[in-house]
Design a protein around this nucleic acid. Structure first.
Length: 808
RNA sequence: GCCGAUGUGGCGAAAUGGCAGACGCAAGGGACUUAAAAUCCCUCGAGGGCAACCUCAUGUCGGUUCGAGUCCGACCAUCGGCACCA
């Protein structure tokens, strides 16, 4: 069989016949299968694409064969830095390179033979898409979920743009690896923190990998504690600190404000001003990396001011220190050196008091700092209380005096969405000298991204250098105004694309609510785990926000999620040009065809784990398909042969077992075992054919069912064989076969016989015997009697279909 | 440092607490062939024994159990995530 020719033959026909067309009239039976869409790079599809799209296609085809109305769209995440950086390097405009890449990649994806319905294609860089991305922004803005603020933000020195918290990995830019600085800038944020609790609670109900849910949970970082008010000594000013350990408040001997804390300037005494100013300057110049590398060193400067410990009225020094984060809690902490490691180091270095106020229950482990929970001491009327009780009671006591309250804090920050780059969706806001921030009226959307822009990155937004774009009149009062010239983070575009697919041609709305409420959530979402705290979190935020604004009626975008593993280079490193270890699927596909290639990657790896590439087995899979062809064609030629064989029962068993196991495996993305089961069946069919005078009709029917089972994995080959067997087009419309439970039961079954848990022999018993009967049968067995040799049988454990354990 | 995952033949990997290594690859032997390819058959965790068989083996050490790759505890190694989050 010429596999590459049949790829073409059938793929062309399937596309001409629109075989994978989603039936919009039967939404109640829909099954939405989605793979994370891809970035249109100029390169050819790589092994990773095949691993993601090819393998998920097996699932999609299986669900089709189960009678589901499968919705399986594909599109492109087309805005973003690579195209822009490519443009800076080569001068090719991002719009041109992107559109070209999309058409190349689309063709490659079509050639893959996956069951996408291309009618629903979308690309986020097209105005008819980003019009609605902008619309989303405006809705969020109107509901107070998009806002602008000046804050310390992450600045990538090489990309010349700000980054979201989620895009900073170990102090480096996730995209280019350059160092990230903290800068105070006015930027746009989405209020993801408004949904912190719901994002956390919703995780329980999701069929997602536990690991991923845990990552989101940790990222959200809920922590219960208290805010306590410290009044400044001889002043009307005060500040709050956040703590989870209000039980240690009696041990507080100082307080620290973050360098960016607004109160620092107000309270610093003239004598300390110079030192504090110097310290602040130095802190602002520190990169994330430097802060991390000096993590253990606790620097700081005394402000000269004193505050009052609210629980005991003690006067404590107020310091500035960069180990306190401006962006978490209140940007200020109480220093309790005796019971916090960092405070301990800080106090030691700066000669501050260390007062023990918690004791361990058993008087052991009394070294300071003691950071565990324990019993309160030196704490006035709270003495003797446990830390758990104390943390709540101290806060409640202070609450009575208006000096404290219990609060919950989250580590999650609001999502920074503006970028100082060109190739993204413009933020639809106008700044009017009279009216302030004005959203672009919806009828004027999209705010088109102009083509003729100077997009060399120099830290300023490229659009600001385009006067026709940036100069507008205020939509409200008509006064000359300026447009917002930043663009949106591409993650904004990808946070709602799954909502657009089902209604991708809608010109009046981003999507029709009636439709979307029936089409969503996505039933099976497939993509890499690297998006755990970015795309997957942002999308959940979008759905919840849209729900609260009344645009849809469900809570979660992705009901069930599967992460594919990563196929590494043969050297065990991630495939990359710089490692020189990139494997191209094309070499294999052009030699063996797409079915054999995807069968190989299905068989050779555990799907969710992946692993280093190796290709020793590709030939073996090709050989296996040759064998399949031989067996199938032979079976066809003997289909009318009358006869019977002692193997009839065995053949039926293997068919039933294959149908059962492979169906389950397809559903579980356990493709390697699915292939193994089908190999067993083919081996059995071949063995059966070698029998004299076998039942040709039985074999032929077995072959037909086998091809139905194999189709999701190898649709082209199966379609070709199906035709050769004179069956009606198309096998892709055939139902997945069912099996008879009776066939799964063999007449007799071999059981291992253990004596004191050691296997001694095996016996064959009738498979429908009860546990009791098996025991009797076994103890009657001559071999067993001999092995027992008159020993005293204490107990017999029978595990049906497995073994018998005789305890003597 | 904290959280999580993983660890099984020469290799990829299988195993609802129940015969460890399914299914393959590679390797070796054989059949067919003038020969090769293809195909088919056999062997294939380690060690011991003429043998029927025996002993040891799922990172290490313990534990629970009639029975542990699987459950529990401690440790080691690798990978991933978070990391001054008060």
């Amino acid at each position: 069989m010429n596999y590459t020719e049949i790829d073409k033959k059938w793929n062309t026909r399937w596309q001409a016949d629109a075989l994978y067309k989603f039936d919009k009239t039967k939404i109640e039976n829909k099954h939405y299968v989605l793979e994370m869409f891809s970035y249109p790079s100029g390169a050819k599809l790589h092994v990773g694409h095949w691993y993601n799209y090819g393998m998920a296609d097996i699932y999609a085809r299986y669900m089709r064969a189960q009678g589901k109305n499968v919705f399986h769209p594909m599109g492109f995440d087309a805005f973003g830095l690579p195209a822009e950086n490519y443009a800076i390097k080569t001068g090719v405009h991002p719009a041109d390179s992107t559109h070209k890449n999309i058409s190349i990649m689309e063709q490659q994806l079509r050639d893959m033979g996956a069951s996408f319905d291309w009618d629903y294609e979308l690309a986020t860089c097209n105005p008819d898409y980003y019009k609605w991305t902008q619309w989303m922004f405006i809705q969020l803005f109107k509901h107070g979920l998009a806002y602008r603020k000046n804050a310390p933000v992450n600045w990538c020195t090489s990309c010349n743009t700000v980054l979201a918290n989620e895009q900073v990995i170990d102090g480096h830019c996730e995209r280019c690896g350059s160092e990230v600085l903290k800068k105070n800038l006015t930027q746009w944020f989405f209020k993801t923190t408004a949904y912190a609790q719901e994002l956390l609670d919703g995780l329980d109900k999701l069929d997602w990998p536990e690991k991923t849910k845990l990552m989101q949970k940790n990222w959200i970082g809920k922590s219960n504690g208290a805010e306590l008010v410290f009044k400044l000594y001889n002043s009307d000013e005060s500040f709050s600190v956040f703590t989870t350990r209000a039980d240690t408040l009696f041990g507080c001997s100082y307080a620290v404000l973050a360098p960016e804390h607004p109160l620092v300037n107000k309270i610093t005494t003239p004598q300390q001003r110079q030192a504090v100013e110097d310290y602040k300057l130095q802190a602002s110049k520190t990169t994330e990396i430097e802060r991390l590398s000096t993590a253990k060193e606790k620097t700081g400067v005394f402000t000269g001011a004193y505050a009052i410990n609210p629980i005991n009225g003690k006067k404590v020094q107020v310091w500035v220190g960069d180990y306190v984060l401006a962006t978490y809690g209140t940007g200020a902490i109480m220093g309790v050196p005796s019971h916090d490691e960092r405070d301990y180091i800080f106090a030691h270095k700066h000669n501050l008091d260390i007062v023990r106020v918690i004791k361990s229950a058993d008087d052991s482990a009394d070294e300071l700092p003691y950071t565990e929970y324990g019993i309160m001491v030196n704490s006035g009327k709270f003495n003797g209380m446990t830390s758990e009780e104390g943390a709540i009671n101290v806060a409640k006591e202070l609450e009575k005096q208006g000096l404290g309250k219990l609060v919950t804090n989250y580590r999650l920050r609001d999502w920074l969405v503006s970028r100082q780059r060109y190739w993204g969706a413009p933020i639809p806001i106008v700044y009017c000298p009279h009216c302030g921030m004005v959203p672009v009226p919806e009828k004027d959307l999209p705010v088109l991204l102009p083509y003729d822009v100077e997009f060399t990155p120099d830290g300023a937004s490229p659009l600001a250098k385009h006067p026709e774009f940036s100069n507008v009149t205020c939509p409200i009062c008509g006064a000359p105004s300026k447009r917002e010239c930043d663009t949106l983070d591409t993650f904004v575009c990808s946070s709602w694309y799954f909502l657009r697919y089902p209604d991708n041609k809608n010109e009046d709305m981003p999507f029709d609510k009636q439709l979307i409420d029936r089409m969503l959530p996505v039933d099976k979402y497939v993509g890499g785990p690297e998006h755990a705290c970015t795309h997957l979190m942002y999308s959940r935020f979008f759905v919840k926000a849209l729900r609260d604004m009344g645009y849809l009626d469900f809570d979660e975008p992705f009901k069930s999620l599967v992460h594919q593993g990563v196929i590494l280079g043969p050297d065990g490193n991630r495939m990359s040009k710089s490692h020189g270890n990139v494997i191209s699927p094309d070499t294999y596909v052009s030699q063996y065809g797409s079915d054999i290639f995807r069968s190989y990657i299905a068989f050779a790896f555990k799907y969710i784990e992946g692993g280093p590439w190796k290709d020793e087995g590709v030939k073996a899979i090709a050989r296996w398909y040759d064998k399949v062809e031989r067996v199938v064609i032979d079976a066809y030629s003997t289909r009318n042969q009358q006869g019977n064989s002692p193997m009839d029962k065995e053949l039926k068993y293997y068919l039933a077992n294959t149908i059962k196991c492979v169906g389950q495996d397809y559903q579980d993305f356990s493709y390697n075992t699915a292939v193994a089961r089908m190999m067993e069946l083919v081996n059995t069919m071949a063995k059966y054919q070698a029998q004299a005078n076998y039942d040709g009709k039985l074999l032929f029917n077995t072959v037909l069912d086998f091809l139905r089972v194999l189709t999701p994995l190898a649709p082209h080959i199966c379609e070709e064989l199906w035709e050769q067997l004179g069956q009606e087009y198309s096998i892709c419309n055939q139902r997945f076969p069912s099996y008879n439970d009776r066939d799964l039961v063999m007449d007799t079954v071999e059981l291992a016989v253990q004596i004191n848990s050691k296997i001694k022999c095996r016996i064959n018993v009738d498979s429908n015997l009860s546990v009791k009967e098996i025991e009797t049968e076994c103890l009657k067995d001559a071999q067993v009697i001999q092995l027992l040799d008159g020993m005293n049988v204490k107990k017999v454990i029978v595990i049906p279909n497995r073994l018998i354990n005789i305890i003597v």
